[in-house]
């Protein structure tokens, strides 16, 4: 793949809080990591003239997403990254449709095809490690540009809500303790 077309590496990291907690996506963890901007190196930030509150279009060989950006200097100059597993489709996890995860949250999945590009041999190979079958996340190369002003205040793609298999979540949670 020509480096000029996709000069940056895009990574994700699962928030450590998710590994160390008793529960998973619960009322506490979403207060610790409830939004996930795309962290952009100072070098990329300056090159594209980003300002706080801006949105960017991130493009790979496979697709395009529109996401909020944040500057991070403690980062390799040619790398962008975000927290994985924060973005949720509306209706998922019994979250309110207004939840930040379902609006400003996003995933890099839309940039990654499950198959490698065709090689003319009539076969399509899985985009995964040939030995373990693990998805090859760290192979993702992208390019970035500033999103045109006036776009919606939510990440794209933005899908219609899915029906929740569980009843709406309670407003106030008082986990454990004495019952009142």
């Amino acid at each position: 793949m020509p480096e000029g077309d996709f000069p940056l590496h895009a990574l994700t990291q699962r928030p450590m809080a998710m590994y160390h907690s008793w529960g998973s996506q619960n009322a506490w963890l979403r207060q610790i990591h409830g939004v996930n901007p795309l962290f952009v190196s100072g070098e990329i930030w300056a090159e594209h003239g980003f300002a706080e509150g801006d949105w960017a279009i991130l493009t790979s060989a496979h697709g395009e997403i529109r996401v909020p950006v944040a500057r991070m200097d403690a980062l390799n100059g040619k790398t962008v990254w975000t927290w994985n597993a924060i973005g949720k489709r509306k209706g998922a996890w019994a979250l309110s449709p207004e939840a930040p995860e379902a609006n400003r949250g996003f995933l890099l999945n839309h940039l990654i095809h499950e198959l490698l590009p065709p090689r003319g041999d009539g076969l399509r190979w899985a985009n995964s490690d040939p030995v373990t079958g693990q998805a090859a996340w760290y192979d993702l190369r992208v390019r970035i540009r500033k999103a045109p002003p006036g776009g919606p205040d939510h990440a794209e793609p933005d899908f219609a809500p899915i029906a929740s298999p569980v009843p709406p979540a309670p407003g106030t949670v008082r986990h454990g303790g004495r019952t009142s």
């Binding site: 928030p15 450590m16 809080a17 160390h20 907690s21 008793w22 009322a27 506490w28 963890l29 979403r30 207060q31 610790i32 996890w93 019994a94 979250l95 309110s96 207004e98 939840a99 979540a169 309670p170 407003g171 106030t172 949670v173 008082r174 986990h175 454990g176 303790g177 004495r178 009142s180």
Partner: peptide
Amino acid sequence: HACVVSCKEWNSQSPLGAPLADLDAYG
């Protein structure tokens, strides 16, 4: 944040006081 979560877990179940509430927990 392991300390943050384990603190909240222990202290929400403590007989010493009320659980640590979350308002608009999924909103």
